[in-house]
């Protein structure tokens, strides 16, 4: 359950960056590379729990999966890796080896774990635990 530690870092780094942005944060969009070993469900649960009492309370955590891209130093290939398991299987594992020449590769995408953007409601309600104002 290291997702709690990851989300703790996410919240403690994001909250100060929102100080100059007024409004109620309704969603946090995160890009998560498929090479990271993190459960989306556990990240969402951790976010819901740890955001309480912060500017991010009540916001949704939206996770976008990023597929791995590999680059081969030997032949110059850059693109999707081969996969272990059925190619149609959503859970097939990327193999860090060049699909063209079998050389060793480095991942140029797939290790991301970053906040890409946040959605802010312009409803005049301050962020955090405040309830929406009566109409």
């Amino acid at each position: 359950m290291h997702e709690y530690a990851v989300v703790d870092e996410l919240i403690s780094s994001l909250v100060p960056r929102l100080e100059t942005i007024p409004g109620r944060v309704t969603a946090v969009f995160v890009r998560k590379g498929e090479l990271r070993i993190l459960s989306a469900h556990a990240l969402e649960s951790a976010f819901e729990f740890l955001a309480k009492g912060t500017r991010l309370e009540g916001a949704r955590l939206e996770i976008e999966d990023v597929a791995a891209i590999v680059r081969c130093a030997a032949c110059g290939y850059e693109g999707p890796p081969c996969r272990f398991g059925d190619a149609d299987d959503h859970f097939a594992i990327p193999i860090l080896s060049c699909p063209r020449c079998g050389g060793s590769v480095t991942a140029t995408a797939g290790r991301e774990l970053c906040v890409e953007r946040v959605a802010v409601a312009d409803d005049g309600v301050a962020g955090g635990a405040a309830e929406p104002a009566d109409p």
Binding site: V6, E9, S13, C114, E116
Partner: peptide, 16 residues
């Protein structure tokens, strides 16, 4: 509703 974009810094940047 509007969106604020970030630079894409890794969430674990401090750890890195």
């Amino acid at each position: 509703m509007h969106e604020v974009r970030f630079s894409g810094e890794d969430i674990l940047a401090r750890q890195l």
